[in-house]
Amino acid sequence: MDVLSVTRGPQVMIAYYVSDLITGLAAITATFLLAERFDGIGPWTRSEVLFLLGYALLVRALIDTLFNWNLAHISRRIGRGQLDHLLVQPQPLWMALLTEGFAPATGSGMLLPGLGLLIWSIHQLGLTLSAGWYALLVINLLASIATVLAFEYAWGSLAFWAPRASEEINSDTWRLLMQLAPFPLDGLSGLAVATLLTAVPIGLVAWYPSRALLGIGTASLPAEAYLLSAAIAFAAFAMWIFTRGLRRYCRTGSSRYLDYGHRR
């Protein structure tokens, strides 16, 4: 179905991908220009910054590809009473949440630029890559995606209790994570970095996993262990709060329904 959307005609397809590309480039331009102007940011060389940008773009592109149709922005679906559409399907809710947002054609506009940036920076850095490194890359990407989604679902669940006030809360949490993700956090105070690696996990989206992959700062093993533990902890918390909200939803239902955005 997703492929049907973009194959409606050549103009439609071009418009889709050009607009996606512009959005993606806009997201990383600030960091790129800073790195270019100062030949790197803090302890990060220009090529390492490019790697960070590529990684951040890839995380975003994968979420767009796998959790489209507001499944990453779940507060919209909850706030607009649209969970009903998922609940009348004969499949467990978790399965619907994991599959309905699959949009390989309309959501993957930034996948190739992200991948390209990553490959180019790896080439520039002259990294020797092993199978283990590739495995770590995949694990880190999965951990980053899980952390972002968990953050989104944890905050988005507020819409179960305050549907109108929280309907757009995921737009803000998404902006918070995605706009700051491509910036190196080195140089910030210890407290700030600790906060950005725990309560507000901006550092876990791209900065910390990129450091681990490039071998900057912390030794690789403890960094990987922390990344995975944090992703699991965030996911567990998000599941806990989402389940509580869902129970409430099943008891009281949604007091408002807006068709806006539903399957559009």
Partner: peptide
Amino acid sequence: GQRTELWWDH
């Protein structure tokens, strides 16, 4: 009656 299960752009 006030909702649709159809995919809007399809």
